[in-house]
Design a protein around this nucleic acid. Structure first.
Lengths: 204, 204
DNA sequence: TTGAGAGTTGAACGATCACTCAAGTCGCGA
DNA sequence: TCGCGACTTGAGTGATCGTTCAACTCTCAA
């Protein structure tokens, strides 16, 4: 059976994702988690502590909930990067281009966040970038020697977050697809420069 | 003399930029604009109408307040793109990496915004992308024939917004600089492919 | 001089916010 | 069987939210 604490965190994850942090009231969380105010404040000193628990839960879920499903059946490291991006595309399609990356959402909403919160958002980004960097390093030989794998990995995150933001604003996956297409072209150009070894398994 | 209505819009622009829409109260705006509640509601039916007025003001200011200062003394169209990005970099530096693009901020904060609001955010993005597209078209001969100028312009916006988001999260311009550096490398690769005509005036 | 409309004043409204707390239920070791 | 700590209950707190409104001042055309 799921504990009250877990139910609160899970429903808060969903609500922060759907409505944002500021627009989600404690009452919203309590109703969704079928709990009372006293229970929530028994586990969490305040609303912000619910947020930090949510961010910790996201971070813990990066590999099992995000990367592993996205990478199932995809072996080529570079294709894994684009498989992950395709995952976000699917998220946009499934929600009518209204819900994007929950972390990026919180990153922009909380303008002057408590360091406790900001550090956790940064940690989530780091976990994501780590995964991309692994892929780039696994295909290191295909890229020019002077590229910086981590810098390029950050650029993939930059593209994803920016593309999701535009897709949500325009309510179209088209802008998302076009940004990813430009990123693909950049990757192709990089790999072409280095000599284009074993480009295997590219879809479509 | 500046009218009460103008003062309200200008202070609301600043406050929405600094604290976000939801976190800015009517009382905040009234205090900053030195006005009373009745005056605000004389000009605006509600808080959301203040927001639409702010978005209209941003859109009207794109050329005179953003593009013209950024492009002063920069003639090369491609360098104008990066001069505009440098403008956002300066904004980050001046504010200790806390304030980024006000439109991107609102775009993510308002999750299921009234169409009236969403259309205005999209219009702001469009105005920005139009400017970039003009630059690309002005240097059309330097790029491969099969690139889509508007698509590439959207990609510049994608990069800017994503880079600003990360800079704010990490509280460093470094991540911003690195993303822009990757974009520069992409532009260089594109122009190299097409034959590299007249690369003039690149700084540093 | 007068009247009317534009603009201003600021107290007050009900709703909702994050949060508190005294009283209660429950499981479990002693 | 007892007692204690973990957890739950839900009414209630003051603060703040967006918004209303009747009364007021000011400007200027008639």
């Amino acid at each position: 059976m799921m504990s009250t604490r877990d139910r609160i965190v899970i429903e808060a994850m969903r609500l922060f994702w759907e409505k944002g942090y500021a627009s989600t009231s404690i009452a919203d969380i309590l109703k969704a988690a079928d709990a009372n105010a006293g229970s929530l404040y028994h586990f969490f000193p305040g609303k912000q502590d619910v947020l930090t628990a949510v961010l910790d839960a996201y971070q813990a879920g990066i590999r099992p909930m995000l990367l592993e499903p996205a990478w199932a059946g995809v072996d080529d490291p570079v294709e894994r990067i684009f498989a992950l991006l395709a995952r976000y595309r699917q998220l946009l399609v499934d929600t009518g281009c209204t819900y994007g990356c929950p972390i990026g959402y919180l990153a922009l909403e909380l303008h002057e966040p408590d360091p406790v919160v900001r550090v956790r958002i940064a940690a989530n980004f780091d976990g994501w970038v780590d995964a991309i960097e692994e892929c780039i390093n696994a295909a290191r030989a295909r890229f020019p020697a002077d590229i910086d794998p981590r810098r390029l990995a950050h650029f993939v995150l930059t593209t994803m977050e920016g593309a999701v933001m535009q897709a949500r604003t325009y309510r179209t996956v088209e802008t998302f697809d076009q940004s990813i297409a430009e990123l693909r072209r950049y990757f192709d150009a990089l790999q072409q420069t280095a000599g284009a070894q074993k480009p295997k398994g590219r879809k479509k």
